[in-house]
Lab assay of single mutants.
Amino acid sequence: MASQGTKRSYEQMETDGERQNATEIRASVGKMIGGIGRFYIQMCTELKLSDYEGRLIQNSLTIERMVLSAFDERRNKYLEEHPSAGKDPKKTGGPIYRRVNGKWMRELILYDKEEIRRIWRQANNGDDATAGLTHMMIWHSNLNDATYQRTRALVRTGMDPRMCSLMQGSTLPRRSGAAGAAVKGVGTMVMELVRMIKRGINDRNFWRGENGRKTRIAYERMCNILKGKFQTAAQKAMMDQVRESRNPGNAEFEDLTFLARSALILRGSVAHKSCLPACVYGPAVASGYDFEREGYSLVGIDPFRLLQNSQVYSLIRPNENPAHKSQLVWMACHSAAFEDLRVLSFIKGTKVLPRGKLSTRGVQIASNENMETMESSTLELRSRYWAIRTRSGGNTNQQRASAGQISIQPTFSVQRNLPFDRTTIMAAFNGNTEGRTSDMRTEIIRMMESARPEDVSFQGRGVFELSDEKAASPIVPSFDMSNEGSYFFGDNAEEYDN
């Protein structure tokens, strides 16, 4: 783990906690998980779902989305002020799938948001429990990260689609708070800032007046979040320049895209947490497990152990491969979309394939898809080993990566060399080191050039047997250095459309 220093740990961010010791953190995270579980059980009762239907990941996603929508204050306010045809701002819903006479049927349900809020609060001892809501947002974000390569979004903001390893959390809503900021990748933060800068260039009043003052505060806050992700002084200094700019424009845009590229080699610290679907927490609570009393951590053995003992089902389209669908969801559960496939294969105990080789589309089923041909199958979400999630980018030494994705962002704290394609990355730096950030740029390029592919990161860190909950005997895996390590390699994943 990167030293926490003055930073709060993510469990504290996750639970809005002030400084807590490890036991208190485990208890408050457990409380959050228990609340999600209780809410899910109650919703299944309301909807009269069978046990099997309640364990269907598509039903879980609909129920999670309903509660997130019920608590989305800004959108609710907007919907009330701008009524649109056929949208009731006070209601929320989605597809629920039921097994009827041996076939899967889709039923569109509609609930009062007020009623959903009441059920959620009741499951969370009367609190709004925003930490639990954020947790579900991060699960949705991790699922998107594993399912889609955001080529269009990258290109629109002047970045290269091969930089997708920097895009963790790119679909997280803005209201996801400190826990959300911690899991956002460098590219995601750059993209958010670039969008602001572009608006400022096109709209003279963007930075002016009372609204402009708020915009400015948001801009500086985002700059500080991004600065905190960088691990070298030169990158941090460049972020200070971007933040202090009187009138952010093209120079800042250039600096930010430069920094994003540099992060492929001088990786930023991005938190990883295993956020599971509500249909995993519900049955665990129903079986009598007391998360608050037992304590829970999002970055240790607990999620692995929970998945070892969970039964989750998914709808499967006619030509999809259930094992591939399982891999997709497994990666999402562990926030591992940008991790090295060699490491993932070792931990999972079966070969993890790149996205383009998977015969599976996303987990969600569109409303126009034919239910007649839908089957369902068990998702295999178990693992051979477990490993500690990392909050750091690993040290800054790398190795060759593949054509589709030119770097990785480690999820697990496991000893290995970190793949990246130096030639491709360095070719993108057209040696432009003039301007006010020239000395920093020169320094950053120097550090990137001296990074050695064969150097090892996370020295001495290994994986653990599932029986080793105290992480007492690390097993340090050895990897084939020459092997392909990137998930979005030469990829044809669908595009994420909101």
Score class of each variant (00 low, 15 high):
residue 404 G to C: 15
residue 331 M to E: 01
residue 353 L to C: 11
residue 302 D to M: 03
residue 293 R to N: 10
residue 161 P to M: 06
residue 251 A to Q: 08
residue 421 D to I: 15
residue 189 M to P: 01
residue 88 D to I: 02
residue 6 T to F: 00
residue 58 Q to Y: 02
residue 11 E to Y: 03
residue 151 T to G: 03
residue 32 M to Q: 06
residue 305 R to V: 02
residue 46 E to P: 00
residue 412 F to A: 01
residue 397 N to S: 10
residue 467 S to L: 09
residue 228 G to Q: 02
residue 319 N to M: 12
residue 85 A to T: 13
residue 3 S to D: 00
residue 224 N to C: 14
residue 90 K to G: 14
residue 197 I to K: 02
residue 433 T to E: 12
residue 288 G to Q: 08
residue 436 R to N: 06
residue 388 I to R: 06
residue 263 A to K: 04
residue 261 R to F: 07
residue 12 Q to I: 14
residue 305 R to Y: 14
residue 13 M to S: 00
residue 493 A to I: 09
residue 383 S to P: 04
residue 115 E to L: 01
residue 68 L to P: 04
residue 343 V to Q: 08
residue 92 T to V: 08
residue 235 Q to M: 15
residue 443 E to I: 08
residue 235 Q to H: 14
residue 385 Y to W: 04
residue 198 K to R: 15
residue 301 I to S: 10
residue 403 A to E: 09
residue 358 L to F: 12
residue 78 Y to E: 02
residue 275 C to N: 05
residue 472 A to R: 02
residue 457 S to M: 06
residue 461 R to F: 01
residue 150 R to H: 10
residue 396 T to F: 14
residue 310 S to L: 13
residue 15 T to R: 00
residue 140 H to L: 15
residue 405 Q to K: 12
residue 396 T to N: 10
residue 294 E to W: 00
residue 152 R to H: 05
residue 47 L to D: 04
residue 91 K to A: 03
residue 456 V to Q: 08
residue 380 E to K: 10
residue 437 T to R: 08
residue 235 Q to L: 05
residue 155 V to M: 07
residue 65 R to T: 07
residue 153 A to Q: 03
residue 227 K to P: 01
residue 343 V to D: 02
residue 312 V to E: 08
residue 82 H to N: 10
residue 114 E to P: 14
residue 292 E to F: 06
residue 272 H to N: 12
residue 205 N to A: 10
residue 272 H to Y: 10
residue 5 G to E: 01
residue 208 R to H: 03
residue 458 F to L: 08
residue 196 M to W: 05
residue 271 A to W: 00
residue 124 N to C: 09
residue 77 K to F: 10
residue 290 D to K: 03
residue 440 M to S: 03
residue 49 L to Q: 00
residue 467 S to T: 08
residue 299 V to G: 09
residue 322 P to A: 13
residue 123 A to K: 01
residue 273 K to L: 01
residue 118 R to D: 00
residue 411 T to A: 12
residue 20 Q to W: 04
residue 139 W to Y: 13
residue 2 A to M: 12
residue 235 Q to G: 13
residue 85 A to N: 04
residue 110 L to E: 10
residue 441 R to E: 09
residue 17 G to Y: 00
residue 28 S to E: 10
residue 9 S to M: 06
residue 193 L to R: 08
residue 195 R to S: 06
residue 362 G to L: 03
residue 354 P to C: 13
residue 401 A to M: 11
residue 285 V to A: 14
residue 207 W to T: 07
residue 433 T to W: 00
residue 63 I to D: 03
residue 458 F to V: 06
residue 60 S to E: 04
residue 427 A to W: 04
residue 320 E to L: 04
residue 459 Q to Y: 03
residue 361 R to V: 02
residue 141 S to T: 09
residue 136 M to N: 10
residue 178 A to R: 11
residue 213 R to P: 11
residue 393 G to Y: 03
residue 356 G to K: 01
residue 30 G to T: 01
residue 461 R to P: 06
residue 365 I to K: 04
residue 460 G to K: 06
residue 445 I to K: 08
residue 183 V to A: 15
residue 412 F to Q: 03
residue 494 E to V: 11
residue 84 S to T: 07
residue 228 G to T: 15
residue 256 L to H: 12
residue 200 G to L: 09
residue 221 R to A: 08
residue 363 V to E: 01
residue 295 G to C: 11
residue 263 A to I: 05
residue 488 F to H: 05
residue 271 A to D: 03
residue 161 P to Q: 02
residue 131 A to K: 00
residue 404 G to P: 01
residue 387 A to I: 00
residue 493 A to L: 13
residue 294 E to Y: 13
residue 292 E to D: 15
residue 358 L to W: 10
residue 396 T to Q: 06
residue 126 G to F: 00
residue 341 L to F: 03
residue 412 F to I: 11
residue 466 L to Q: 13
residue 173 P to L: 03
residue 79 L to M: 10
residue 448 M to S: 02
residue 339 E to G: 08
residue 99 R to Q: 08
residue 357 K to C: 00
residue 65 R to W: 10
residue 426 M to G: 02
residue 62 T to Q: 05
residue 236 K to I: 12
residue 14 E to Y: 00
residue 21 N to L: 08
residue 121 R to N: 01
residue 221 R to L: 03
residue 320 E to K: 10
residue 190 V to R: 01
residue 385 Y to P: 02
